[in-house]
Design a protein around this nucleic acid. Structure first.
Length: 734
RNA sequence: GGGUGGUUAGCUCAGCUGGUUAGAGCGCACGCUUCACACGCGUGAGGUCACAGGUUCGAAUCCUGUACUACCCACCA
């Protein structure tokens, strides 16, 4: 690899460097060096030095002839709590890539951010309110917003400190918060554009309603949980229907069957039947629709369009009326007669009782397996409700995303995620972006004569002219703004970093975001900037506990990265997270492993001490003996190998190879074999071996720096007469 | 119902395009206070690479199937 950057870069004057050679002892060995490596007394000092150098910002890099930009957008951590192990992993992986590319001479830019995390933060805050005996439903929206804002800002600072502790070499001068005023405005403008492009529409449709949180949720914000529940068979006039949700059946006046089902050929579409139902006699109408599966149950069902998406579609197809049975809090409405006001689950057995008394229950299958939708945050049963909401029309946008995959402009690591992504895109349903929570970006929409036949609506930042316009009180789904994040942080469309740093290079994030986040970013990038926001998606696995089990607060097996860095050093944690961690595969985090890499930090420390103490400081051009030049070549081939691995995103392999080389080859064999040579009589041999060991130390530090930035930089600072003052910006020699 | 991984040493995992006696960390056994490091050094035990077929001169590695396991997706009430 050609060193493209000048070797003699200067550190800006405001940076206090620690070049021990100049001020302390001639070979770099001072008192601290004689003790074991002490990460606690090193890391914050080193980080400060890096940050003060200004080189986290690529615009300050002393390289007039630098290569292209290399950009990573940091998935903005939620500003609502401490960093967890997953954060530690992604920071490590991204920092490795950024440091590697920076040393390679790229204008490496890593843009940090903080996420207000709409619904998630509101949930966290509501829990806090609950503990204090308060509720958001007793608060004015503005009051609630202000409180959450203060809470989030405090946590944002906390989060930033912790990101620094992980060694993240990101450009803080470009940090953005998802509720920065310019972000809010730009996101709102995108909505307005989509409205006028016909990509966003107001729809009265079935939404996923969380009765606890009092908001609608998108499909990716619900969890499908397998459950065993009774399936009830009821007599419905001449038919038998099966249902798992008897409490929705009050208003059912349409009985539906497949048009080709010969068992029911005698019944004609539109025919009416009088029958006895829960609260008395009703008149039902026969509907024939192909959505019915003749093989399920009896092949006949009644529909509840307000509380079931399939039923809703059927009702729309046949132009049938629909009525709300369950209110927004999950209680039965007056249509339920004597059951009105009851919570649905409490009402269910009572309804069955009534039906049994009437002789309408023919069978109860207790072992019925089905899938229930639950709120992914509070696990409350989702109640489908029909509601006026804003939807993004997905088909045309998804089509572009699929093309981007097909023509190779976006690729996935590991590759199998491409298939998963494509499948999702091909089946994407329209996306509900309205949320009934205060903690988010307001939807810039306005209504006149709301809820009447003459309703008008408008999308604009300002209240439209004329009387009677009222603002939409809903906020955007967090992913609506997060989806635009690569564009927002690079100042699309006309700011200083666009298009310099757009499209970015790699999106590195957890595989759990394959549907929540990645598709939205691809879609917005293609729609707005006509270019996908990144060419590579690197997906890492989850960080599990030592037994490979998912960490969770309730299980009490959560391992805090902060405790581990404190105990073993950030470098050790970084190595432990990275070695053996194949892309896309979950990793088990064991304290022992971290401890092992703490020992490795110390090993490097002692390698350096040996080399600086026991070798002569010789000119770079010192002629090498043939054994030594063979070892130099071996070092070079390791470097080349590691470079290849990093370029192919085989980060786990690169880290392991370096570990192995440094400890078991360099220290165990080469240094051991050097001892007699360095103590020998032959000056040529001594000088040659000195030159070799110093070169190997130099190369080892460079190669390991992206992985273990702190200890390598600290050692680097102790090597006398360094031309490159900072290892962070030293040239990668691969 | 559909999909995607995983199955390699006691535990947690590597093994990149198939190629000499299959690797690491931790753990274990034995021996070393050797002047870089006991956060260390040396030596060693431990694996029919889930199973069954197949391709090949050669397979942990490629193909087919089976079993087990994990995760994801899903508008059969």
């Amino acid at each position: 690899m050609d060193p493209v950057r000048k070797n003699d870069q200067e550190i800006p004057a405001n940076t206090e460097t620690r070049n021990h050679a100049a001020t302390e002892v001639s070979n770099g060995i001072d008192g601290a060096f004689l003790k074991p490596y002490d990460s606690q007394n090193t890391e914050s000092r080193i980080y400060e030095m890096w940050e003060n150098s200004g080189y986290f910002n690529p615009d300050n890099l002393p390289c007039a002839s630098c290569r292209d930009p290399y950009t990573i957008v940091m998935p903005p951590p939620n500003a609502n709590g401490d960093l967890h192990a997953g954060h530690a992993l992604f920071i490590t992986l991204e920092d490795i890539l950024i440091r590697f590319k920076r040393m390679m001479g790229y204008r490496a830019l890593w843009i940090p951010g903080a996420d207000h995390a709409g619904f998630e933060t509101q949930v966290v805050y509501e829990k806090k309110l609950e503990k204090e005996g308060r509720s958001r439903f007793q608060m004015e929206p503005q009051e609630l917003y202000d409180e959450i804002y203060a809470f989030t800002l405090a946590n944002k600072k906390n989060m930033e400190t912790q990101v620094r502790m992980m060694g993240a070499s990101c450009d803080w001068s470009r940090e953005k918060f998802t509720l920065d005023p310019d972000v809010v405005t730009r996101v709102q403008e995108v909505f307005i554009k989509m409205f006028s492009d016909g990509l966003v529409y107001r729809g009265k449709r079935t939404v996923n309603w969380c009765p606890k949180h009092q908001t609608s949720l998108s499909d990716v914000e619900t969890a499908n949980v397998e459950e065993t529940a009774p399936l009830y068979y009821f007599k419905y006039g001449p038919f038998t229907i099966a249902t798992a949700r008897p409490e929705t059946k009050f208003g059912d006046k349409y009985v539906v069957m497949h048009p080709d089902d010969t068992r029911y050929a005698a019944w004609k579409h539109g025919q009416t039947i009088d029958l006895e139902w829960i609260n008395g006699p009703i008149t039902a109408t026969v509907i024939k629709d192909e959505a019915i599966d003749p093989a399920f149950g009896t092949g006949v069902m009644t529909i509840t369009p307000w509380h079931d998406a399939t039923d809703f579609e059927i009702a729309k197809r046949h132009n049938l009326p629909f009525e709300q049975i369950i209110d927004w809090r999950g209680k039965l409405l007056p249509i339920a007669g004597e059951f009105a006001g009851m919570k649905i689950l409490a009402a269910r057995p009572k309804i069955i009782e009534t039906l049994q008394r009437k002789g309408l229950v023919t069978k109860i299958d207790e072992q019925y397996q089905h899938v229930a939708k639950r709120c992914y945050k509070c696990n409350t049963l989702i109640e489908p409700q029909v509601k006026d909401q804003w939807f993004v029309k997905m088909a045309p946008l998804a089509q572009q995303a699929i093309e981007a995959i097909n023509n190779g402009s976006v690729r996935f690591i590991p590759e199998n995620y491409e298939k998963i992504f494509r499948y999702w895109m091909e089946n994407a349903l329209d996306w509900n972006i309205s949320r009934q929570i205060v903690w988010g970006i307001p939807i810039p929409a306005w209504f006149k004569n709301r809820g009447t036949d003459t309703e008008e609506m408008a999308a604009s930042l300002e209240r439209p002219d004329g009387d009677g316009w009222e603002a939409d009180t809903d906020t955007f789904d967090t992913w609506f703004s997060s989806g635009q994040w690569p564009l927002l942080v690079t100042d699309f469309p006309t700011g200083k970093d666009f298009p310099t740093y757009y499209p970015t290079d790699v999106m590195e994030t957890g595989h759990d975001l394959i549907f929540k986040w990645i598709p939205r970013m691809v879609i917005f990038g293609l729609y707005l900037a006509k270019q996908a926001p990144f060419h590579t998606v690197y997906l890492h696995g989850l960080v599990n506990d030592a037994q490979g089990k998912k960490m969770s607060k309730s299980k009490g097996n959560v391992i805090s990265p902060l405790t581990l860095t404190e105990k073993y050093g950030t470098d050790a944690l970084r190595m432990a997270l990275v070695v053996g961690n194949t892309p896309g595969t979950d990793v088990a985090l064991r304290e022992d492993k971290v401890k092992g890499y703490k020992h490795f930090s110390n090993k490097l420390w002692n390698i350096a001490r040996f080399v600086l103490e026991r070798t002569e400081e010789v000119p770079i051009a010192t002629p090498l003996e043939s054994d030594d030049s063979a070892l130099r070549d071996e070092m070079a081939s390791v470097a080349a190998d590691v470079t290849k691995d990093l370029e192919a995103y085989r980060i786990h392999l690169a880290a392991e190879k370096l570990y192995h080389f440094a400890w078991h080859r360099f220290a165990d064999e080469i240094i051991e074999a050097s001892k007699p040579l360095l103590a020998g009589e032959d000056e040529g041999v001594r000088r040659s071996r000195s030159a070799l060991l110093r070169l190997m130390l130099d190369r080892t530090l460079r190669l390991l720096h992206p992985f273990m930035p702190f200890v390598t930089e600290e050692i680097w600072q102790r090597i006398p007469n360094q031309k490159e003052k900072l290892l962070m910006t030293a040239v990668w020699i691969g």
